[in-house]
């Protein structure tokens, strides 16, 4: 319980810092009163808007006001779409989350088995093949891979839809493109972890006691080897949520990443602020969950 409270307190502290940074950074980057007043507004209009929205008050007061609204789920109104930011993010976030989850599932289901197989026979052809796959995944730009898939599976074979998010089929290519990039890191960590664990005494003991190799591998070795992989996977998922902008743009998935990107280009500051905050909170939550999961997998962490 102590470990949990400590981690939770740390996460809340980080969330608070993130909120201060996202609030401050965006206030510094542009005059929000000019953006709200809109195209063609006179200086008087802008000043009126500044007073009307309380933007003439000291920044700390504005921050506390914004934070109290944010805690109640009110993230302001989009200057471009003219709808509440929370509603806008609520519409778009499920798309990014679905994409991130599918990409992660693809990455883990490819990387972990590959890592295990590679670890079983280090420096064999299987290991080299897995390494080659990892190098290709890391070296190839995501957008290039995405375009290749579009050409082959969308334009040429016409098996999969190219753009939009109308059905689950629309997510196949984006998830593979996004997930493949995360595969090498997970695969290499799994491989390294497995090689290390498989060389430990308790594995040798387990084998000497006549346990089946499957049991040794999956019940005893993998559970310990995947501890760092869990943390990495949580981090990768965070990166996927934030970093899916290019993929969302290429496949015309109207998710939160894409929303943030177009909002930056339109100076729609409330939306940018809202998306940054929500994605940061998800990232913090994921890290917290990874810590707790690690503690469950490895009780020694709880004592520390």
């Amino acid at each position: 319980m102590g470990y949990f409270l400590k981690r939770l307190g740390l996460a809340l502290l980080v969330a608070l810092v993130v909120s201060v940074i996202s609030f401050g950074a965006l206030r510094i980057s542009g005059d929000i009163a000019t953006a709200i007043a809109g195209e063609g507004a006179s200086s008087e209009d802008i000043e009126f808007t500044r007073k009307q929205h309380g933007l003439d008050r000291p920044l700390p007061i504005q921050y506390l006001d914004w934070l109290s609204h944010a805690l109640q789920g009110d993230l302001g109104t989009s200057l471009y779409f003219r709808v509440p930011v929370a509603e806008l993010i609520g519409d778009r976030l499920p798309i990014s989350l679905a994409l991130g989850c599918l990409a992660l599932i693809f990455a883990v289901s490819l990387a972990v088995p590959l890592g295990v197989v590679a670890a079983l026979k280090p420096n064999s052809i299987v290991d080299r093949l897995a390494l080659w796959l990892a190098v290709v995944g890391q070296a190839m730009p995501t957008f290039w891979f995405a375009l290749l898939m579009i050409v082959v599976f969308g334009a040429w074979l016409r098996w999969l839809p190219i753009s939009g998010n109308e059905s689950w089929k629309n997510f196949i290519m984006p998830a593979i493109a996004l997930g493949y990039y995360a595969t090498p890191a997970i695969m290499r960590l799994t491989r390294a972890g497995m090689i290390e664990v498989l060389g430990l005494d308790y594995i040798r003991t387990a084998r000497a006691m006549g346990l089946r190799s499957g049991t040794v591998l999956f019940k005893h070795a993998l559970r310990n080897a995947v501890i760092p992989v869990v943390s990495l996977t949580a981090v990768q998922f965070g990166f996927m949520l934030g970093g899916s902008i290019v993929i969302e743009s290429i496949f015309s998935l109207h998710g939160a990443g894409h929303l943030a990107w177009i909002s930056i280009s339109r100076s729609d500051l409330p939306v940018v602020q809202g998306v940054v905050l929500v994605l940061a909170l998800i990232y913090i939550l994921l890290t917290l969950l990874a810590d707790l999961l690690n503690a469950w997998l490895d009780p020694r962490l709880r004592i520390e």
Binding site: L147, I150, V151, G154, R158, P161, I162, S163, S252, I262
Partner: peptide, 16 residues
């Protein structure tokens, strides 16, 4: 709405 112009071309090619 397809925000990426290259994707628009790909959709044209595929008949989407």
């Amino acid at each position: 709405t397809i925000t990426d112009k290259d994707t628009i071309v790909a959709e044209l090619i595929s008949g989407g």
